[in-house]
Each structure stands twice: as structure tokens, then as C-alpha cells.
Deep mutational scan, measured.
Amino acid sequence: PDDEWKERLREAEEKNNWKLFEELARKAGVSEEKIEEWKRRWS
């Protein structure tokens, strides 16, 4: 299951679909801290 969400995150990233990325990350149990960090790195 871990690989599956990583794959989906990669797809979201490729499409630059931040909303989807964020949603998937939350569902995968990624901390808000980590998500914010990704946001900063991404923008």
C-alpha cells in the first residue's frame, strides 16, 4: 500500500495538482509539518 500512495503522489506532482497531492498525503498519514515543508519547497 505504501508504494501505491507514493505512485499517486508522483502522479499528482507531475500534473502539478497540489490539492490532490495534499489530500493523498493527509490520507497517507503525512504530518502537516511535512506537508507545509513540501509546499514551501514546491512553490
Rank of each mutant, 00 (worst) to 15 (best):
K19R: 11
D3H: 08
K15R: 11
L20M: 08
R40T: 11
A12S: 05
S43V: 10
D2L: 11
E32K: 08
S43M: 13
K6I: 15
V30N: 01
E36Y: 06
F21V: 07
N16D: 09
E32W: 06
K39A: 05
E37G: 01
G29E: 01
A28S: 06
E11F: 03
K27E: 13
E14P: 02
E32Y: 04
E22W: 08
K15L: 13
E14W: 10
E33I: 05
K39C: 02
R10T: 07
P1Y: 13
R26M: 06
E33M: 06
R40K: 11
N17S: 07
A12P: 01
K27Y: 10
K6M: 15
E13Q: 15
S31R: 04
A12W: 10
N17V: 04
E23T: 07
S43Q: 15
S43W: 15
N16R: 14
E37V: 03
N17F: 06
K27A: 15
W5H: 02
W42G: 02
E37R: 02
S43T: 12
K34M: 14
E22T: 04
I35L: 11
L24H: 05
A25Y: 03
E11L: 05
V30E: 02
K39D: 01
R8I: 15
L24C: 07
R26K: 09
S43P: 14
N17W: 05
N16H: 12
K19N: 14
K19L: 12
K6S: 13
E23A: 08
A12H: 05
E32M: 06
E4K: 06
A28Y: 12
L9W: 11
N16P: 02
W18C: 10
R8M: 15
K39H: 09
G29R: 00
E36I: 07
S31V: 03
K6L: 15
D2M: 10
L20I: 07
A12D: 02
S43H: 14
F21K: 00
K6G: 13
P1A: 12
W42Q: 03
E23D: 10
I35T: 00
E32L: 07
E33F: 05
R26G: 01
L9P: 03
R40D: 12
E32T: 08
D2E: 11
A25R: 00
D3F: 09
R41L: 15
I35V: 02
E36S: 08
E37Q: 05
R8S: 11
V30F: 15
S43A: 14
E22V: 09
V30A: 04
L24P: 01
I35H: 00
S31W: 01
D3E: 12
A12N: 03
E11M: 03
A25N: 00
D2I: 10
F21T: 01
R41G: 13
S43K: 12
W18A: 01
K39G: 04
E33Q: 09
R41K: 14
F21I: 05
K15S: 14
E23R: 03
E11R: 03
R8H: 13
D2Q: 09
K19C: 10
E32Q: 10
R26A: 03
W18L: 03
R26F: 03
F21P: 00
K27D: 12
R8G: 09
K27N: 11
R10D: 08
W38D: 01
L9Y: 09
I35R: 00
K19H: 12
E4Q: 08
R41E: 15
L24Y: 12
K19Q: 12
N17K: 05
E33C: 06
W42Y: 10
E13H: 15
A28G: 07
W5G: 01
R41I: 14
K6E: 15
E22D: 05
D3P: 07
R10C: 13
S31L: 04
R8T: 10
K27M: 11
A28F: 11
N17G: 05
K27R: 11
E7Q: 11
L9K: 01
E23S: 07
E32D: 12
K27H: 11
D3Y: 09
L24F: 11
P1I: 15
E37D: 07
A25I: 06
E4V: 11
D2T: 11
A28L: 11
N16S: 07
V30Q: 02
W38H: 09
W38L: 10
N16M: 10
D3T: 08
E13D: 05
W38V: 06
W5T: 03
E23K: 04
A25G: 01
E14M: 13
D2N: 09
P1E: 13
R40S: 13
E14K: 11
E36K: 07
W42I: 04
K6A: 15
